[in-house]
Design a protein around this nucleic acid. Sequence first.
DNA 1: CGCCAGGTGGGAT
DNA 2: ATCCCACATGGC
Length: 246
Amino acid sequence: MKQEAGRQIPGIYELLEAAYGYQGWWPLLSKAGSPGYDDEGYLIGRDWRGAPTPSQRFEIVLGAILTQNTTWENAKRALIALRAHGLRGPKAILAENPSQLPTIIRSSGYHNQKAIKLRTVSEFLHSGNYLARRKAPDRERLLSVWGVGEETVDSILLYAFGMPFFVVDAYTRRLLARLGIADEHASYVWIQRLFENAMPPDAELLGEYHALIVRHAKTHCRKRPVCGGCPLRRRCPFPRDHSPES
DNA sequence: CGCCAGGTGGGAT
DNA sequence: ATCCCACATGGC
């Protein structure tokens, strides 16, 4: 498509922010309940955020893997279990008995695969010392790590390293398709460019946008849509194209 | 019960 | 390039 497809992108951001308010991603278990964060670990205001510590970066990486095609609640249980076992860094993950790891993260689903993914990404981070150096890994290199796909790589670079990459997920696709902005199977990079070309290259802003889309997709733009009270209703052909489910 | 959730890699077409 | 499938738990 042409660049005109991105025309509505900034306006949609404004509407979502107005409707849902500041989301304060990425949620940090290690911050939950501390000043400036809510009980779930979401940042409450913009003023508390500094660069994540190495430990916080690692927690974000773990969460990004564990939440793949899985609810955050299930991923969070696995994070809590990892913390309870003292597995807070790449070295600890690599030192853990490989046959025990799947058991620890069982609640996240796909736990056998995800255990391997936690090891491969830990090996990568450890060998390049990426957590302590605040230097972000190269996107292509990180993408080549087994278990780290496009969404995960951008989640890590954006939320753990503050790089201005937009994260595209299933919610983003569904939203754009219903709004008539993009085809359901548009490529990842096509959608990513759409947002990155339409918005300033600001990590805080792009992170907030992705978080707002997740929030919106859970609230109104669900698989089974709840169009009443939708903040994007004025712009969305969906309610008119499909008769309301009885 | 069946469907869904903040994907990814591997193998076939 | 693109499609199809296995991978898995917990909530509703």
